[in-house]
Nucleic acid binder design. Structure first.
Lengths: 225, 225
DNA sequence: CGACCATTTGATATGGATCAAGCGATGTGG
DNA sequence: CCACATCGCTTGATCCATATCAAATGGTCG
């Protein structure tokens, strides 16, 4: 089911500079040489349990991390948008697998290089720690999501996406409903119904199924808190 | 509702040595001087949003971290048993609050001391990173818990506690049902009923409400995976 | 003994899952 | 260029796990 990947060895200077400027806080880390790679939609980037020899930064596209439970259900850990770093592990195994949601371009960075550099350069060490801490914060928020009602989960998700890909009040959802459902711990039907409901309530507009306009963000936020 | 705390300045050598031996992996970190403090049952150790000037290690007793949601519900982040480190933040604010579940003795360590030491000593930096990574792994497991059925959650919880406080197949639960419920995202009634059901099925025994004997761990594990 | 708190048990309600069908875009072969 | 298969999404009907509301039980401490 997963497709083959293509590798490119470009790594243009211009691209690097642009990235660095928009991502100050991880600048130190990504200053490392890394190879840009392209992954087609639904390509696996790494699998659960594989050695975590690399970490990754999204140059363009969207990536999800996921885990298949014993009963076959799938839980999505996170979505990663342009600029986000993923796949960084403290242990040396990936605890989730990662797939490209859309055709994506990803910077691949050797973990061992960073880890050994961190042993000498405390700034790098600090960066690694910060990145893991950021991931921790993300996952903690995710836990809070999972104990809420369906409507709260969906609204939180939309607000999160809106915050992360800032383009006014219209959010482009790169992922299918099934991914959203598996992220929120709901079924695809419940996600769909909830969106319809929010639309009927005038809280959002759905020009297309993948584009959502937040009509009253303040109200939405309050609705949930 | 929260009680006052008492402070002690003891810090016996014998105690330290015993701890260090049972906690190799964080030995580097806790080698730092820290003040042991006592907290009575239900005492707040720190509050959500407070500056994270200290981190903590449980010497004896049990601690929970929690967060109150907008609608008044409470989510428990984790339970910390003897030897566990908690309250370590990458940012400088506590994202959860922490309370002693039972009368507890806790080693209090100044964060700034560690952070500045980490800037010079890469082993310490590594320790900080590892501790945060361990927390991350714990929270990720927690997410997987929250999408399971009530029975699976309860069984997972019992197995987790049994692994962490190894004393054969009998687990002593230091926390009340309400804490378990708020950890598992269930109601107290559902937790209670589920335990009763497991007992009727012969999967566990409940000599007292706070003591659980796992009758068939292998089966329990398989039951859930 | 009696008050209080934690826990269990019982009866009922409900949010979201499940099962099933319809719908709208997109693409493909005749 | 149209018929038709496919895929992602929505909508509908029903069911069930867990929440909610309510009361009983049991253990602890003054």
């Amino acid at each position: 089911m997963l497709m083959r990947t293509t590798i490119e060895q470009d790594g243009s200077r211009a691209g690097r500079a642009a990235r660095a400027s928009s991502l100050r806080s991880v600048a130190g880390v990504i200053a490392m040489t890394g190879a840009p790679m392209n992954f087609a939609r639904n390509c696996e980037i790494y699998g659960e349990g594989e050695p975590a020899d690399y970490l990754y930064q999204v140059i363009s596209g969207t990536v999800r991390t996921s885990k298949i439970l014993a009963d076959g259900r799938r839980q999505i850990g996170s979505f990663y948008l342009t600029g986000d770093v993923f796949g960084l592990e403290v242990d040396d195994e990936h605890t989730f697998s990662a797939e490209a949601i859309t055709d994506s371009r990803v910077l691949v960075i050797k973990r061992s290089a960073l880890v050994s550099l961190a042993a000498r350069d405390s700034d790098v060490a600090r960066q690694l720690w910060t990145l893991t801490g950021r991931e921790l914060a993300r996952v903690q928020d995710h836990i809070l999501l999972l104990v809420k009602t369906a409507q709260e989960r969906v609204v939180d998700f939309l607000l999160e996406m809106a915050d992360r890909a800032p383009s006014g009040d219209t959010v482009e959802l790169p992922m299918p409903r099934q991914d959203i459902a598996d992220y929120l711990g709901l079924t695809i039907e419940t996600v769909s119904r909830t969106l319809t409901m929010l639309e009927n309530d005038g809280a959002i507009a759905l020009p297309t199924s993948r584009r959502v306009t937040l009509r009253k963000r303040a109200a939405l936020g309050r609705l949930n808190a």
